[in-house]
Design a protein around this nucleic acid. Structure first.
Lengths: 243, 243
DNA sequence: GCAAAAGTGTTCTAGCTACACCCATGC
DNA sequence: GCATGGGTGTAGCTAGAACACTTTTGC
């Protein structure tokens, strides 16, 4: 049997298959320097009227990343953001309708590039900590929900994303993805992102020093030569990422 | 429409679906303190006669972990090993037969628990470094292959696993999974695992100190009170993990 | 003048690195 | 006696934490 004969004889439909979806954790930072997550209110069963992560089924001719990008473009008009695979959730009963295996992706995007028209079914929620609990709050809609109230296993997905983000701050450059302008930012602005993700205050002096050691000395980032007064009265040096 | 009506009306077979598989990266350490990986020689197209990672299709009523465990039990009689999800590979053309999305799992197991009858189609290969290249070698079969010769995208999966393992040594306890006996091991033995994974020599004095700080002081590990001469002439203290 | 961020300097500590050193044992 | 791992000690360097301090500007 040649390979060609083998391939055409192969019957890919002989077994029942699980469905495959991708979920997107669209994370941004608002003007008050708080993390926000994009949620969609379910209009159908199961979990009707619960808030959930935007998801899409994976088409036969698109990669996982392409499925996430397509879904986000269709649902909220988003394009060209940083995507990173988070984890694959495959418990048998995670969706009561049928077996769905879902590959979760984290999408980081600065809020200035996020032109979402908030409706009563699509909205950004602040991620707030109250002790050990996480609550999600949208002030325009006047909605506050507990993370445990999300549809499906999305509580688990969101918690995984937050932990991954915290863990990756140190040894990767993901924080830059939340800057409003990677070609012109201040150290203070980057510190705000770190503080929002880590949910704790950092010492600005130490942050400056470690920024310079980690990025300037290694030539990953350089001064633009321009100054900014966006965050202060005194002009501040601005930096840009070297490609 | 009630939720019950909705669920029964839901037609889960209306769209064509990708197939879903799991791949297992069974990693162990041999008597010479080298990492080994379990490979299976393909007996069918595509990639006929190439070596590959053991994989299984995911059944409708089993979780991803269960699918990995079932596959390993059926193919090589392995049970009860440490499993950790690695990454999901979903490129459209990764399998020329059909669309297969594969969730890779890393399985760590001490060689003493790995009772594999090596045949010409199932074997453990040493993971060896030659400069920047990785080669896979089985001396019983007299086979040496380059990592680039693996079937499908398994080169990529194996490289991802090795990197993950290296990265996780520091901040997790994965190294313990490769100990032949978690209830009786020496510090030297643990150091050999670190050296095999990191592919570099470590200072034994510093390793002892950091082991004690990280595990003894925190009461995660304690002395057994027994001594071992397995690795030396002078008797050595042995340790066990506290559950 | 006050507040707030920009930016620098200093001190202290913890941890890691690279050794040197002695001990116990098998050969 | 010598090689090998068991085990401890130590000096030096580095990164990070905590905090003090000056500067520049808008109000």
């Amino acid at each position: 049997m040649t390979e060609q004969e083998y391939l055409s004889a192969y019957d890919s439909s002989q077994y029942e298959k699980p469905s495959v979806a991708v979920d997107a954790l669209v994370i941004t930072m608002n003007e008050e320097q708080q993390l926000e997550i994009l949620l969609i209110k379910r209009d159908a069963h199961p979990f009707k009227d619960k808030w959930s992560l935007p998801g899409s089924f994976v088409g036969m001719k698109e990669s996982l990343e392409e499925a996430v990008a397509r879904g986000l473009k269709q649902k909220v008009g988003l394009e060209n953001m940083y995507l990173e695979q988070l984890y694959t959730f495959g418990a048998v009963e995670r969706d009561p309708r049928m077996r769905i295996i879902s590959i979760a992706y984290m999408a980081l995007i600065p809020k200035c590039k996020l032109h979402i028209v908030e409706t009563s079914t699509i909205a950004l929620f602040k991620v707030l900590y109250t002790g050990d609990n996480i609550i999600l709050k949208n002030e325009n809609l006047g909605i506050t929900i507990k993370i445990t109230d999300l549809a499906f296993d999305h509580e688990n997905e969101l918690k995984t994303a937050i932990e991954r983000l915290k863990g990756k701050l140190d040894y990767t450059d993901v924080a830059f993805e939340l800057l409003s302008n990677q070609n012109c930012f201040t150290i203070y602005e980057l510190k705000l992102i770190y503080e929002a993700v880590l949910n704790k205050q950092l010492d600005i002096g130490n942050f400056r020093r470690s920024f310079k050691k980690k990025y300037i000395d290694t030539k990953k980032v350089t001064e633009t030569g321009m100054e900014s007064k966006e965050f202060s009265k005194k002009p501040s040096a601005t930096y840009k990422i070297i490609q």
